[in-house]
């Protein structure tokens, strides 16, 4: 199983941006979501999510709002900003290019 350190920093950013792009989510939900969608392959050490979240917030790619969860508790919900959307597209495109290239190398023997 991949340890968080193995996740390239940019990759974690990309995952977070993608995850919050659909709807505002709080930290725990983001961690869960990444785990679920990736079929438990990408298991981010949950805590290391927070430095990344705050860094992205400082860059104004995501914004945060305190709101009530469905269980009635206060939680910090992150959502994508316009700048974040642009960044997501850029990073996604980058990722696609990179993975395609790596695929090509790996599969052409």
């Amino acid at each position: 199983m991949a340890k968080p350190n193995d996740l390239v920093q940019g990759t974690l950013d990309l995952l977070i941006l993608k995850t919050v792009s659909l709807e505002p989510k709080h930290g725990w939900a983001i961690a869960k979501r990444i785990q679920q969608i990736s079929g438990e392959v990408l298991q981010v050490q949950q805590g290391s999510l927070y430095p990344a979240l705050h860094r992205l917030e400082q860059k104004a790619w995501i914004k945060a709002k305190w709101a009530e969860t469905e269980t009635g508790r206060q939680a910090k919900f992150y959502s994508l900003t316009a700048a974040g959307r642009a960044q997501l597209e850029k990073e996604a495109a980058n990722w696609n290019r990179l993975s395609a290239a790596i695929n090509l190398v790996v599969e052409t023997t």
Partner: peptide
């Protein structure tokens, strides 16, 4: 266990505040 050391992570987070 799944979260990691909260103190260290808090430090790291504060770091991002610049």
């Amino acid at each position: 266990r799944t979260f990691g050391n909260p103190t260290v992570l808090k430090e790291e987070t504060r770091d991002t505040w610049g």
